[in-house]
Design a protein around this nucleic acid. Structure first.
Lengths: 377, 377
DNA sequence: GATCTCTTCTGTACCGATAAAGTAACCCAG
DNA sequence: CTGGGTTACTTTATCGGTACAGAAGAGATC
């Protein structure tokens, strides 16, 4: 096995002799090394953390002793306490982490965030929104700041983060005061989709979306929670534009992103008495479900039915027919979020007052093959 | 805004009066609260962490005072140091995090891990394999253990984790001694695919795979690194079976998972002098590229060309024709990995010797529409 | 040769908690 | 009224570092 040669500690690792005493391995700390070399603990600390504070030779001696003792580096937890920073930032999602990863939008966003954060050396901690046996990650995990992705502000975990006074950035969700936010121009995107259909001549238009308000008695579904803000914004854009064009859409809301619910919604919207000639969808996933349902009913897309998605997920291009959809730039979103967060953290460390930034990510309509003029009645 | 009612601290939060002194907010710690209530610091600690150690009434008094002072809960870093556990486990990937998320296999795996870990209250830290300005996440981030996903053992970051003596679990990669592992039965999966093609009657068979060995002078590509182990295993399975069937495959290796490289490889394998009638692919992604390349050459799948994928990613079912592929159970893999890790950590905490487990995840062949008997010459 | 300025180390004072052992008060049986 | 068992806190001793203000010695400056 090849051993890494980068990093301070030489590469003779699984053999920490010298640390054992009477069979018990007492833990090696800075003090152990200091005693061995005959310097103060502080000098050893500097050897690892501030190389400019000691002579190169002394540093070499110390690192050699450390390697010999099997010392890897300053204990991260102790360092975090002493320094007041952990080197990790949290990402909170409303959806269960399991489903979040299956969502290519979210995945692409994470990717961009991680990518942007990597050069700063910060790691990303995924915060389960669930808590258990007294452990509440949003409250108990050490971190320097957090990204709140698509969560409503009244979510318990968000609340903990806010109370901790951590630097926060809200993404795709309603921000709380004093925090930065990164939002899509949802309304504009929705308007573009709606206008596109109007321009093509459609007059009977359906909308398939997430529930924007919780029906009374509806327990907030973890998988759907948080989409409320986005759903509302999009709906405003759609309805605004359609009504300006003299069209009153048929709105169908589903409460859960999962396959069966979405399919059912898709079927429902096509099965109504006055079948729409076009459907605006909350997501590409829903659009795909609509296309599928149309197929089952013997309708051809786009000849018999036009379908507009949202997000321009990878799925949109792969679908047949390729989906007309509202494109959002995931990479830009992730980058903006990561940048806003690092700057918030920097401010916070410098003791400066928070300076909430508000980033708005541009969207545009990508016209592909799933939309066409309606078939003349 | 609704405020969470769970958790110890009452919900009157953004107003921490009492903490301010002369305009400066001195930090509120257990001691601050202890002084205010007139008890020892330890009692306050117990009020938060070990409710059974004090009277209910005293606890109420303390929590009230804490809330009044704007105290959220014990400082995570300090607690981590004192307790010796952080509540977070790392996940190390060789690929850059950015690309990892775009890979539905990896995403599904994470999802399953996160899901499995959630009830334990542990958070997942994503460790960038890159390091910067003295910060090496694998060495410097506090964590209780880590999952090593698809990384070669000689990877620098892996090396740091090993030296830290963290409980580790290796997934889809060569494990190091004393660590548990979760592996697919790669060879068996490859054999199934190869046998399927033989059974259909194919004799000219191509293999499109990742490079299993680094060509001399080839700088390890972060996006491809770590796939070597898996690539080798699969190749052994394929070649073994094909040769047993009297077939010598044409092997084409690509060095990078990215679109252009894969497409190029796909074209290359179909453009050769003796075009194969079937191709075994390292992944569904590659299979998709082969299907696409075939389309461009005017070949029909499966009539003119059979294609077998690997992994059974979501893509496989969506593709047209639906892909025959080797199915792996991501959820089981994630679950097994998470379980192995938590048990390793538990062992470690209890001071017991590590007991490496070796999980082997079953795979099977899913025959869909991309394979058929070869067209008679 | 006194003073200044580096460079290189050292001492002290935290960072904010927890574990484990100790103590005081109380209750009840014998 | 003595002794054993609880309950409810308190004491003491770390956990493993880092920041910052010296201090000691070596050159450099005038």
């Amino acid at each position: 096995m090849t051993v890494a040669s980068r990093g301070p500690a030489p590469a003779t690792y699984p053999v920490p002799h010298g640390a054992e005493q009477g069979g018990v391995v007492s833990r090696v700390t800075l003090q152990t090394i200091a005693d061995r070399v005959g310097v103060s603990r502080m000098t050893v600390s500097n050897a690892f953390s501030r190389p400019d504070q000691l002579s190169a030779e002394m540093r070499r001696t110390i690192l050699a002793a450390a390697a010999d003792l099997g010392y890897v580096g300053p204990d991260p937890s102790a360092r975090a306490l002493a320094r007041g920073t952990t080197g990790a930032v949290g990402v909170l999602l409303t959806e269960s982490l399991g489903t979040a990863f299956l969502d290519p939008i979210a995945a692409a966003f994470f990717g961009a965030v991680a990518e942007e954060l990597a050069p700063t050396g910060m790691a990303v901690v995924l915060l389960p929104s669930t808590s258990s046996e007294g452990m509440i990650p949003a409250r108990d995990i050490p971190m320097d700041g957090a990204l709140v992705y698509g969560c409503a502000g009244d979510y318990p975990a968000v609340d903990w983060l806010v109370r901790r006074r951590l630097p926060l950035v809200f993404v795709d969700g309603e921000p709380v005061a004093e925090a930065s936010s990164v939002l899509l121009d949802e309304r504009h995107g929705a308007r573009l989709g709606a206008q596109h259909l109007l321009d093509l001549g459609h007059r009977r238009i359906g909308i398939l979306t997430m529930n924007s308000t919780e029906p009374p008695g509806w327990a907030p579904d973890p998988a759907a929670a948080g989409s409320g803000f986005v759903a509302r914004e999009r709906q405003i854009g759609w309805v605004e534009t359609l009504e300006a064009g003299g069209v009153t859409p048929v709105v169908m809301e589903v409460h859960d992103n999962a396959e069966p619910f979405v399919s059912q919604g898709a079927r429902a919207i096509l099965d109504g008495p006055e079948r729409p000639s076009a459907v605006l969808c909350f997501s590409d996933l829903m659009a795909a479900a609509v296309v599928h349902a149309a197929e089952e009913l013997g309708l051809r897309v786009p000849e018999d039915l036009s379908v507009v998605g949202f997000d321009d997920s990878p799925l949109a291009r792969r679908l047949r027919p390729a989906l007309t959809t509202v494109h959002q730039d995931f990479a830009a979103k992730g980058k903006a979020a990561a940048a806003a967060l690092t700057s918030s953290i920097a401010r916070f460390r410098a003791g400066e007052a928070p300076a909430p930034e508000e980033h708005r990510i541009l969207v545009d309509l990508v016209v592909r093959d799933s939309t066409a003029p309606p078939r003349p009645a």
